[in-house]
Design a protein around this nucleic acid. Structure first.
Lengths: 131, 131
DNA sequence: TATACAATGATACAAAGATACAATTATACA
DNA sequence: TGTATAATTGTATCTTTGTATCATTGTATA
């Protein structure tokens, strides 16, 4: 069971304390990829904190690519610690994605131009906060 | 056998992912009118999802007139996917693909522009997989 | 003091899961 | 063949879990 220790008198915001301590437990091996973290409400209760505070900490870790929070399911440590992959690898990964996308679009009977437009028409912020 | 691919990290709800992918397989001909879909429990097991999530997806498709779910019998692709909605389905399927592609590219740290270019640079002839 | 801002809390909501139920089909057996 | 019973399949409803939005609190600073 995840045991954190908050210092309510510290100047460090509770949210940040939660983030830092989870990161530390991950680095020290107490938490491992695939592990499920306590629910925001459960952890909030043990920490005697509002569950939104835990939720905020979880979101920060989520946006950092460290955990995955899934509404209705729970939050989990991701398999891959933040990938500092080379630009080369990232490029290859993107190309693989692009190839698959085009193939599927073609199977649906769309041309490359139509496939391009389908993407161009999407607003950029649609990928915000992926969990 | 119907094979879907869920992304638990996406901010697209699992239910919507299931709906979109079934529409896609229908539009691409993998699924044909009269075909029986897996039972809600069977599909849920393979997708590692609660069967209510599949049931919700089936209901959406049912209400859209695409499939017919029958308690105690199963769910089937309707004989008559309203012909004019065919292009509509293809369109929605493409949009779902585009959204997913952008999300994954974004996760790799690429902008929408870079994602677009990655496709634009590919040659058109990647259309294997027709029928 | 007053105002602005950041951190936290409160409340309502949405997505997914758990459980019990109803309709249909399959099976056993007289 | 007919009927009872079990198994299968979708449905209804409530619970669990994270999200969004606004209110409150404390603190810095003009």
């Amino acid at each position: 069971m995840l045991t954190l220790n908050l210092d309510f008198r510290s100047d460090v915001p509770l949210t940040n304390q939660i983030v830092a301590q989870i990161q530390r437990q991950l680095a020290s091996g107490v938490l491992k990829p695939g592990d499920q973290l306590p629910t925001v409400r459960a952890l909030a209760t043990t920490l005697r904190v509002n569950f939104n505070t835990v939720a905020r900490a979880y979101r920060i870790l989520d946006e950092a690519g460290i955990i995955s929070t899934q509404q209705g399911r729970g939050t989990f440590i991701l398999e891959q610690p933040p990938p500092e992959t080379s630009t080369q690898l990232r490029r290859e990964a993107l190309n693989a994605l692009a190839r698959r996308y085009l193939e599927e679009a073609h199977r649906l009977g769309f041309s490359k131009q139509e496939a391009l437009q389908a993407i161009a028409q999407r607003n950029e912020t649609a990928t915000e906060g992926h969990t």
